[in-house]
């Protein structure tokens, strides 16, 4: 993690380091964490760092944040390979891989234009069930359509990969 990639980013004292993000998806990860980040936090983003496992990877360091598990697992939607390190006093106290959530409410939109969740004027929240981890696939609970990783990443937008 961090350290050897040449582009120096200081270690953080307290906070969260999200490592092994597929290259170019760091901003999407941040966008997905969105509201949980809060304003005024110090955030370091490393894009296209070298990685033995992934070739290239992104890293995000957020000072002073210890996110909840459900917020972390959301990250898996755009960065299924990500690992999360919680740092206290410069020491990693928790390290774990993100797990794609079994069910996703809101966040994603069904790709099928005649899905009831796309009907104007209906107060219905899209819901998706995880059907496959690798490749990542979610199925719309309402219409059965399957969303693949590419469609998910596209939907969760944020700036395009650098």
């Amino acid at each position: 993690m961090g350290g050897d990639e040449g582009l120096v980013v200081r270690k953080i004292r307290h906070g969260t380091v999200i490592d092994h993000i597929p290259a170019g998806r760091a901003l999407r990860v941040l966008r997905l964490l969105g509201a949980t980040l809060g304003g005024g936090r110090r955030i370091a983003i490393v894009i296209n760092a070298e990685s033995r496992k992934l070739g290239r990877k992104d890293i995000v360091k957020i000072e002073g944040l210890e996110p909840r598990v459900e917020d972390l697992d959301r990250i898996a939607l755009v960065a299924p390979t990500a690992t999360v390190n919680i740092v206290r006093d410069y020491r990693v106290v928790v390290k774990r891989k993100v797990e794609p959530p079994a069910e996703v409410r809101g966040i994603l939109r069904c790709a099928n234009p005649t899905c009831i969740t796309r009907k104007p004027g209906e107060p219905v929240t899209p819901r998706f069930r995880l059907v496959s981890r690798d490749p990542l696939e979610y199925q719309c609970v309402y219409c059965g359509s399957i969303l693949g990783e590419r469609e998910i990443v596209e939907q969760l937008g944020g700036p395009a990969p650098l």
Partner: peptide, 10 residues
């Protein structure tokens, strides 16, 4: 019966 998929579950 409705033309939108998922209407019955909804």
């Amino acid at each position: 019966r409705h033309r939108y998929e998922g209407s019955a579950l909804y």
